[in-house]
């Protein structure tokens, strides 16, 4: 599925980066080490972490996008880094449980 389609259907806010990308599946975690270990390429990553390290993790794993839940805003340094590295950051007012529920309904599945 195309990231743009996801953004439109779930009404996500675009904070940085481009949307012309494929989404291979979803991964939800707030522990960076867990994402480094288990997320897969082109996954969309759901988290409430706004720390600068999320950009490095997204870059390292080649993630499709980061979705910040609960209306969280990235820290200034995080946003700056995301723009530099061309990492897509999106946001939603939903909590993880419902956001993931909606993504799952759209047909985005998890890694097995």
């Amino acid at each position: 599925m195309n990231l743009k389609e996801v953004v439109e259907k779930i009404n996500l806010k675009v904070i940085s980066g481009e949307l012309d990308k494929e989404v291979s599946g979803g991964y939800s975690s707030d522990l960076l080490s867990d994402v480094i270990a288990n997320a897969e390429e082109d996954n969309i990553w759901i988290t409430l972490q706004t720390h600068i390290n999320i950009v490095a993790v997204a870059n390292l794993k080649g993630l499709s996008a980061i979705i910040l839940i609960n209306n969280r805003q990235p820290e200034d340094t995080t946003l700056q880094k995301a723009i530099e590295e061309n990492i897509t950051i999106l946001s939603t007012e939903l909590q993880t449980f419902e956001l993931v529920g909606k993504l799952y309904e759209l047909g985005i599945h998890g890694n097995s």
Partner: peptide, 17 residues
């Protein structure tokens, strides 16, 4: 809200956000 200078170990333990 969201301001933190928590070290990494605290974050990995589920706090420091």
């Amino acid at each position: 809200p969201g301001y933190s200078n928590a070290p990494g170990w605290v974050r990995e333990l589920g706090f420091g956000a």
